[in-house]
Simulated assay, not measured.
Amino acid sequence: MARGRGRLSNIELLPEECGPIVAWAAEMLQDRDANMTDIYGQFVGKLEAIQREYRGELDFKIPSLSAFGRYSMKLATLTQRLNDTREIAATLAERFDPDASDNLTVIAAEAIKTLVFEVLTNAGEAGIDPKGAMSLANALRAAAQAQGVSTARRQKLEADMAEKAKAAVSAVVKTKGITEEGAAEILDKFLGVKK
């Protein structure tokens, strides 16, 4: 039996027209300038205004304070996870050079590909629903794109470095009287750049 994501919350059940209000509430909760009860009061007021605007044509139940509190906690947890991930990524980016970063991208992409293969292998006779298949396909595509972007970024950094090395050696050649052959040798042997 396929496992779903569970029952939708009352906030997730709100109609599309309420989307901007939910987004506003999420932003207010993340700003932490007002307390949750005050934000909830404004949230209810905005939803009631939508109900009046549509004069009964748009029928929905306004989420309770407890549902809003659960949404707030879920949002806070997700926000904290994202912030932690950003901090970790920033720390790793400072410590790794482009080659190490490329290696990390390749390893992560291969891990995603392996995970997708394992999911497909363990799906059994029930198979995977279309939505799950699409998610797996998106994960594979994203992994492949990440590898391509990482390689392109590394190549651009190498090209930029080569140009800077050529410019620096040219400046030294002019001021110190080094021959063109000497400059080519410096670029080739010490910096790994072809003139």
Rank of each mutant, 00 (worst) to 15 (best):
A137P: 02
G4E: 13
L140P: 01
P15D: 10
A162W: 03
M28P: 00
M36W: 06
Q147F: 03
K174E: 15
R7C: 06
L104V: 10
E125C: 00
L104H: 10
G148I: 05
I50C: 06
A26V: 03
E87Y: 02
L47S: 06
I88S: 11
I112H: 05
I186C: 06
L115I: 02
E57H: 11
V172T: 08
R153L: 15
T85F: 13
A49N: 11
Q51A: 14
Q145W: 10
D102V: 02
K156V: 07
L92H: 07
P20L: 07
A89W: 05
G4P: 09
E94K: 08
I50V: 10
I88R: 04
N35T: 02
D99C: 03
I112Y: 09
G192A: 12
R52L: 14
R95N: 11
N35F: 08
L92E: 09
V106F: 11
E87I: 04
N10K: 12
I186S: 04
L187P: 00
L58E: 00
K176Y: 08
A2M: 12
L187F: 05
Y71F: 11
D102T: 03
I21D: 09
I128Q: 04
S9M: 05
S66V: 07
V106D: 11
K156A: 13
G41Q: 06
A146W: 02
T79A: 15
Q42F: 03
D84A: 14
R70S: 10
A143F: 08
L157H: 08
A123E: 04
G41A: 07
K166P: 02
L191M: 12
N138C: 13
A126W: 08
W24Q: 00
G56M: 09
L58G: 03
I50S: 03
A108P: 01
Q147H: 08
N35E: 15
W24R: 00
R81L: 12
K194Y: 02
R81H: 14
A171T: 05
T105R: 06
S66M: 09
V44P: 01
L8M: 15
R86L: 14
L115N: 07
V116W: 04
S135H: 12
P98F: 08
E110T: 05
N10R: 11
A26D: 12
S150N: 10
F60Q: 01
V193G: 06
T105C: 10
G69V: 02
G41L: 01
V169Y: 00
R55P: 02
Y54C: 05
G148R: 10
